[in-house]
Design a protein around this nucleic acid. Sequence first.
DNA 1: ATTCGGACCTGAAAGC
DNA 2: TGCTTTCAGGTCCGAA
Length: 244
Amino acid sequence: MPELPEVETIKRQLARKVIGKKLRNRKITNVRRRAKLLIIDFSDNSSLIFHLKLTGQLIFNGKPSSSTRKVFYFEDGSHLTFNDARKFGWWKKVKGTKRAEEGFGPEALEVDFKSLKTLFKKRSNTKIKPLLMDQKSIAGIGNIYSNEILFAARIHPLRQVKTLSEKEAWQIFHNVKKILKKAIQYRGTTEQYYRDACGQEGDYLKLLKVYGREGKKCSRCGAAIKREKIGGRSAYFCPKCQPL
DNA sequence: ATTCGGACCTGAAAGC
DNA sequence: TGCTTTCAGGTCCGAA
């Protein structure tokens, strides 16, 4: 589930709710996001790091359920519930976050066009969709938004990076920013498991143009949306708007 | 360097 | 009504 927009949504909501609260004598000083990691910092310079993987949820004052893996209780009686149906997600307590934050590429919402073009040059032999999802190259984009970005940019997910023109590279850059910002405005996409920190579903599902829409009509041209496995993940695209 | 399959788990939906 | 198969917002590892 959670890609950049979902984790960012949770981060913003939690920041408003838990900064200043105390957990086992330590005060929460900040709530941050790096790539798809959610980081809670404490006054003693320790931190809690979460990765929600596919089905993780972090819900403030969430009612425990069968998928609840951990509940963090604050000194004022409120709590933070970590649910994870598939148990891929994790959390850990660290003394510093430097190690955990290493190895990621620039944040998708912060990378500039020049750096993106440099990356395209360096990774010219790979395919564009797996590259957009590679956290070491650009941090935050996953399967839903890589599909949506490439549809908006009219680029086939299998395109070799070295064949992209300047104009096409710009379209990708432009739509990375545009789609992710819009998805944050809508508090992310709930396909099944995702909930924000208030336990609410995200509203971006209704704006999806290709993800999960195999066989349905393209909103631009009416052709049937296709699904194809690329790099082990389902790529969704319009064969007419995104020709190879 | 890149791609592939499998591994980690559970549960919902679709197929027969 | 079952029983089986497929699929899922992520990442990691080892083998071609």
